[in-house]
Design a protein around this nucleic acid. Structure first.
Length: 550
RNA sequence: GCGCCAAUAGCUCAGUUGGAUAGAGCAACGGAUUUCUAAUCCGUAGGUCAGGGGUUCGAAUCCCUUUUGGCGUGCCA
């Protein structure tokens, strides 16, 4: 990596000059091209330590660096920045690396194989996945890919709340629809019930499988059947939607199974043993306020049932037991009140709460014809993940969800996502990829190939645009590391959009194929193949397709 | 009331551990096609980085404060 080479060279000079120094300085790619390929604030940060003026210190660096062949030009600028222009050959050498590493380009061992448990979506299995889950899905899946690429050992998990109150309500809702099918008039569908159309479908499926048989069994048996049937079908629905969306999990963790395994009781007994529970008003409480929560929380309700907090604590204990280094929960914005309770529980159990990390995804507005699409779960009026994929396609949906900082609200413009033009960033990026492919095809027709290409001829790549393209591609490695560390996949989509733009501009300005200048053509084709590789890699990581032709 | 998140161009948003003249895209306006895909490109215009104070060589970025918006603060999940 070029940056670290410059960094090391700077350290070497600091040593050579026998100066006091901090390694806190940076080597960066300046915003302004006139400031060179790289720039460092090393003199600014170390001037005071050596009682020198920053520019004077910088001067000493320049003298030494001027003798190194790696650098074409080293200058002092502004208050004492040192700007570096590198020899073209440095970029050419790195270009070969991009092409040869293929899909492993920009991979690194940065994550040191840290074991990460990444939990996302974890929607209730009470209905089809909605757009909130869609954002979480695109986000989580892409983050996992990026983190794996930079050397983390990531395990993804979907936690299924297939037990408890909501599931009972689901079963009751299904029963009502089932009764309707058998001619019963349901005057008032309870407001807390699930109103969506999908339950009518499920009821009729259930009816064709069982007929009226279910009326003849005991209420308990009937409800159990309702529950099982609904859960099975809805989970299958969710699974299929996610398959369509290209989102996969290493594991689907069932709350029911946790309950069966007695983990809830275990969690409760741990808390009791730690002396963190007490009884009040016929309920059992957790003294979470002792552990940073704003108030104590109920664990077991007066009716004897656990609150949702208990299985959640239990589930998180299993995460700790599975020996991960970092636990990442991706949550919706309405859950941030929840995490303080969970953290409190981890502290109470003397588990390392600093391992538990939460990413909050902010709200989504779907915008159609310039207006926010109003959704109401109660009325069963929601836009599902399937609707969205039908409407705008997987690629656009994923891109739009990824291309926004997680902490920011997201306005999803449905019209824009459908547009097949440069206004639509996903098409813009894919088009760059397809365009390179068509250049390759044309080269093949002209019988120009890279088989007999001597990489010495890469020196023909001496245009600013060409060197900048290479430089841009070399940035990918640190972009991915930043995206992984900060849990911000949008850095990758932003990068991709910029790279695609640079290529389109280059394409418009220079002709790649010139049958009279074979070596030049080959060098440019080589550059194109590198760009194709990098764009393809970025799209792969985001789970977006790479069309050969558009 | 308390807590979390946000506020950057007309709109949607970037802005890396604090760096040089705050950037894209869209919309607006003006241009480019004998060409490997014009699904593209070039140019013009657009800003009190919500307001105020502080920290320092340097602040959109860090700290304090005010304002505005979203959410949370259930024996719902």
């Amino acid at each position: 990596m070029i940056k670290s080479k410059i960094f090391d060279d700077l350290i070497e000079v600091l040593e050579e000059l026998d100066l006091e120094y901090t390694e806190n300085f940076s080597v960066e790619i300046p915003n302004n091209v006139e400031h060179g390929d790289f720039s460092s604030n090393v003199a600014l940060l170390n001037a005071k330590l050596n009682k020198m003026a920053p520019r004077d210190l910088a001067e000493k660096f320049v003298e030494i660096f001027a003798k190194k062949r790696y650098y074409k030009k080293v200058e002092i600028a502004g208050p004492g920045f040192i700007n570096f222009k590198l020899a073209n050959s440095v970029f050419h050498k790195n270009l070969i690396d991009i092409v040869e590493k293929k899909k492993k380009f920009a991979a690194s061992k940065h994550g040191k194989k840290q074991r990460i448990l990444l939990e996302f979506i974890s929607a209730n299995p009470t209905g089809p996945l909605n757009v909130v889950s869609a954002r979480a899905g695109a986000f989580g899946d892409t983050l996992a890919s990026i983190m794996r690429h930079v050397g983390y050992d990531v395990f993804t998990e979907f936690y299924v709340n297939d037990a408890g109150n909501q599931v009972d309500i689901l079963a009751e809702s299904l029963e009502l629809r089932y009764r309707e099918l058998h001619g019963e008039r349901i005057d008032e569908f309870p407001p807390e019930a699930y109103h969506g159309e999908y339950l009518k479908d499920l009821a009729s499926q259930l009816n064709s499988a069982e007929g009226s048989k279910l009326f003849h069994c005991t209420e308990n048996d009937r409800m159990e059947k309702m529950r099982n049937f609904a859960l099975k079908k809805i989970q299958a629905m969710q699974y299929e939607s996610l398959e369509r969306f290209g989102v996969h999990f290493n594991n689907w963790m069932s709350e029911r199974k946790l309950r069966k395994d007695g983990i809830l009781e275990e969690a409760l007994s741990y808390l009791a043993e730690a002396g963190c529970t007490y009884e009040k008003d016929e309920a059992i409480w957790f003294n979470s306020s002792q552990f940073g929560d704003i108030k104590d929380r109920v664990l077991i309700k007066a009716d004897g049932n656990p609150t949702y907090l208990v299985p959640d604590i239990a589930y998180h204990i299993t995460k700790y037991n599975r020996a991960y280094d970092v636990l990442i929960d991706v949550l919706g914005p309405d859950h941030h009140g929840h995490i303080s309770k969970l953290r409190a529980a981890m502290k109470a159990l003397e588990l390392d709460a600093s391992k538990l990390e939460v990413v909050y995804l902010q709200h989504i507005n779907l915008i159609q014809n310039g207006e926010v699409v109003k959704m109401s779960k109660r009325a069963g009026r929601i836009v599902t993940l399937n609707d969205l994929i039908d409407e705008v396609g997987k690629d656009a949906a994923r891109y739009f969800f990824i291309d926004r900082k997680p902490s920011a609200h997201l306005d999803f413009d449905m019209e824009l996502a459908k547009k097949q033009s440069s206004e639509n960033p996903v098409f813009y990026c894919q088009y760059a990829y397809a365009r390179i492919n068509s250049i390759m095809k044309k080269a093949k027709k002209a019988k120009i190939s890279l088989k007999d290409f001597d990489t010495k001829n890469l020196r023909k790549l001496n245009k600013d645009e060409e060197l900048r393209l290479i430089k841009k591609m070399l940035e990918l490695k640190s972009i991915l590391i930043g995206a992984a560390e900060h849990r911000e996949p949008h850095r990758l989509s932003g990068y991709l959009h910029e790279l695609a733009g640079m290529f389109h501009k280059y394409y418009a300005k220079y002709h790649i194929i010139d049958e009279k200048r074979i070596e030049m053509t080959q060098a440019r084709l080589y550059l194109c193949s590198a760009v194709k590789n990098v764009i393809g890699l970025a799209l792969d990581l985001m789970g977006i397709s790479t069309p050969q032709k558009m």
